[in-house]
Design a protein around this nucleic acid. Structure first.
Lengths: 105, 105
DNA sequence: GCTTACGGTAAGTTGTGGCTTACGGAGATG
DNA sequence: CATCTCCGTAAGCCACAACTTACCGTAAGC
């Protein structure tokens, strides 16, 4: 159930802010933390969660650690959401038809 | 930021179980609670959260309250995820190209 | 080799979210 | 009207997650 980890990771506003900040470009941890309203250790802890969820990669470059989005991590979540969407639509249509047929007159 | 509510709602495992249970068909609250490992009041509280997030609809039918998935609630979340996906791919490609060009020899 | 910048880890605090039990109200049924 | 089922709300408890400060590795620059 890896999409559960991903959705759990993205549920936190600070972690969504991190992800949004990484949408354009990869960033070292310090630079990333500078644009956020929390301390740098807090960012480190969030990065661990995002990493465990497979949503980011961290690449050491010299003394910096460059953080980047990892598209594959989103794939599973997208797949789950899509099937959920399809099933919801199907159930919705089925219910509407039941009502149209006069299920409980 | 309505997708935030949606993602927050889906972050909880019990609420995901509720959503999964509703994938096939709409259900009254009691019947829904019967298939879950938590008490009925707990389900009621979860339904409030899911309802506030726009992910379900609750329709009184006699003395029952029938719960159904609401596909539109998923639309915004899907849209956000899709743009995130696109941007992640773009950033990933850009980073790969930077490295190929020999950014830091 | 020493120092400095970068950043992960440890320890402790606190707010909040999910759960339970107990209760109350609305609609069907006789 | 009396009763019974269905379900939402209130109150209280507890675990956990997010944050802070303090500390310690590790790579680079002089």
């Amino acid at each position: 159930m890896a999409y559960g980890d991903a959705i759990g990771a993205l549920a936190d506003p600070t972690r969504r802010a991190i992800v949004e900040a990484l949408k354009g470009r990869a960033l070292p941890v310090g630079e990333l933390a500078q644009g956020l309203p929390v301390s740098r250790p807090a960012v480190s802890q969030h990065l661990r969660v995002l990493g465990d969820a497979g949503l980011i990669t961290v690449t050491p470059r010299g003394t910096r650690r460059v953080v980047a989005l990892r598209p594959e991590g989103l794939a599973e979540l997208r797949a789950w959401l899509d099937t959920l969407w399809d099933d919801a639509l199907a159930a919705y249509a089925a219910e509407a038809e039941r009502q149209a047929k006069g299920d409980s007159p």
